[in-house]
Design a binder for these strands. Structure first.
Ligand SMILES: [Mn+2]
Ligand SMILES: [Mn+2]
Ligand SMILES: [Zn+2]
Ligand SMILES: [Zn+2]
Lengths: 150, 150
DNA sequence: CGCCCAATTGATACAAAATATCATTTATAT
DNA sequence: ATATAAATGATATTTTGTATCAATTGGGCG
């Protein structure tokens, strides 16, 4: 049994539940089940993955609640949506340099583009260390924008 | 008239078309129209945005071809999907530190997680410069993985 | 502990987004 | 110009996400 990673997992869940509670939300069966699934070490789950695994654990949990929970957890910055395949997300034109950096406000979704991301050196180091040919990068910074920060 | 930005735009399109051709794909009306829309300075377009604008330019272009083009352009790393709202994308559990960094292989979508992203100093500088309260960041590096690089 | 009650749920119906299919068209090499 | 595989667009279908609403439940209060 992978006890140590179970410990990490349950502490992740506990910390998430605490954040939920602090924000004034109830700890419900649906939310706990979704969190249990998300905190298992299989990262990068699609909504379909989550639905499938929650269904397996507890068929009584409804689809709608799963989506609602994913949305709520995202709002609270407990989870972050990323992408692997080109689906619903927004598209940017990647310049030939392959560099893009921006700030996203988690409240209003406003984007502040950063012309220069200034991490070329770091990228180089990582490339060498990993033995990879690096084609580009995206640096996303999450920060409350002036409009939302009062 | 915004001639200079038009120039940049058309050179962006030209470079994209060249990459398409080099990869052995045909330059079709549907693909050119989608690229024209994407290269206009409205960044961060959703697929719905693209469909709408392509429809406006040329109603003869079919929806399916728009999706196919977005997928192809992504494969060729000409565009990159990003996200704003929590939709189809994959979810990761964000640690309390708010830091996450990984490498994505554009070919096979394999993810290599990076424990330490080492850009705390840079983030600090950007925070000060922009006058923002920064809550976290995601650094994505695109690189062909060993399995795909031959 | 046992009420209370707003918050949350799950079932259902619905809307939107994306994909599979396939006969027709078109870009490109010769 | 012709040949031919690649690509297209129309259509049908699936998948994904959302609105509605009566029923349930978590958690504070007595
Ligand atoms: Mn850069
Ligand atoms: Mn970091
Ligand atoms: Zn904001
Ligand atoms: Zn790969």
């Amino acid at each position: 049994m992978d006890t140590s990673s179970n410990d990490t997992m349950s502490s992740l869940i506990d910390s998430a539940l605490a954040r939920l509670r602090e924000a004034g939300y109830k700890i419900t069966n649906a939310r706990r089940t979704v969190l249990e699934v998300l905190c298992q070490d299989n990262q990068h789950l699609t909504s379909a993955d989550v639905i499938e695994q929650v269904e397996a654990r507890d068929p009584a949990v409804g689809r709608a609640s799963i989506f609602r929970t994913l949305e709520l957890l995202t709002e609270l910055a407990i989870i972050r949506p990323t992408y692997l395949t080109p689906r619903t997300p927004n598209y940017i034109v990647m310049p030939e340099s392959g560099h893009h950096a921006h700030i996203i406000c988690p409240q209003c979704n406003k984007i502040t583009e950063l012309g220069d991301c200034e991490i070329e050196d770091l990228i180089e180091q990582i490339a060498e260390r990993q033995g990879l040919e690096i084609t580009g990068h995206l640096l996303e910074i999450y920060g409350i924008c002036p409009d939302c920060s009062d």
